[in-house]
Design a protein around this nucleic acid. Sequence first.
DNA 1: ATAAAAACAGGATGATCGACCTGTTAGGAA
DNA 2: TTCCTAACAGGTCGATCATCCTGTTTTTAT
Lengths: 213, 213
Amino acid sequence: MCEQDQLRTMTENKRINDPEGVRRRIVDAAYDAFVTQGYLATGMLELRERASVSGGAMAHHFPAKRDLGLAVIRDRVSEAVRQTWIEPLRTCADAPTAIDSIFESIIDELTDKGRVSGCPLNNMAMDVSHHDAEMREVVSAVFVAWHEALSAKFERDLEEKQASGLDPHSVATLVIAAYSGAMAMAKARQDVGPLIECRAELATLLTAKYRRR
Amino acid sequence: MCEQDQLRTMTENKRINDPEGVRRRIVDAAYDAFVTQGYLATGMLELRERASVSGGAMAHHFPAKRDLGLAVIRDRVSEAVRQTWIEPLRTCADAPTAIDSIFESIIDELTDKGRVSGCPLNNMAMDVSHHDAEMREVVSAVFVAWHEALSAKFERDLEEKQASGLDPHSVATLVIAAYSGAMAMAKARQDVGPLIECRAELATLLTAKYRRR
DNA sequence: ATAAAAACAGGATGATCGACCTGTTAGGAA
DNA sequence: TTCCTAACAGGTCGATCATCCTGTTTTTAT
């Protein structure tokens, strides 16, 4: 007898429709499972159990697995990238400061957790971009948003004469690539070393382009 | 009626045992499929058809799928990394020259092919490193070999006074991470742009550390 | 009030997965 | 030659996969 049956018994067989809540529970469970196990390695049955929803409810909200994948990327992965990488850029003094503190907090977080499950966006990208063109587009859009935010910050720093002699577009690409790649290495080795080293290298690289730091 | 049946009929029911050949065909087919579609997304049946081997032969050479995965990493992926990244480092003038020409040839190759299927090592790493600890170890070993070769070259350049003021270990990590990450972005976007930009950024970064280039 | 639609329950479906089975043949050792 | 084992053939197995079905209840629209 599951939790909902108990509730229904106690409250005289009253069922409560909660579409937003059920949907949120499904997407939350899926985001967690996709990031830690991978999209392909996670079955719909496991997701139903994690979210405690019936097959009917699952099919109602997400008729196919790819719909759930798209929702996870759009609602959770893009939000994670925004909170982790884009938001800090708005309040910081300059791009290098933001990048360094982002690396620091991620390294600390992974050290505390004790294991490296990888960058959510990168994990989804690798699992998904083989076959499904639409999902690849959505993933690509998150990469673009990430790159645009970082690139724009470098450009602003240039205009404010904080930095000189750098190409905002390609530097932003390097930072994202270095982070994604370092996370992939860290995941394979289960060791934050690559992140620490890339953080240091990016710091010295950017310091050279910025005045008195 | 398959090819081998025809052959057997023509040659009076003679079957030819070719263990090395069959094994090679299986690993070749698996490497190609794993790199282009992913490890999890590829079924054993599809592999049998690609390699034109029976279920019995497949089970004889590779009792489980993970055995085949391990063989692909050990025999093909590590060799691909060695040929692409480690071998060029032996004959080149210095590390930056080698890195730049490696990026160039890969960019050219992808441009010709018209699509980006990603870095073989990175693809396997992401697909595999979730659940199976042994496969993660093997992948990790390839990363380590790659990093050691690159790191050793930077060290040699330092000793020969070609470069100064750089940490061979962390610079090597940055190069590998930037390449892996750029490849992941290129795969998601199906566009070599990220590789071109990272190539340029790495070139200017390394030029600053190397004398008169 | 009543009809329509959305939200959910619970189970069934065929397809495909990886693994494994029994039997047969080739090839080398004795 | 005899024998034994590796090499292979071809099929089967239960499990799991994603999807879809019918039926019931809740909510909304009119």
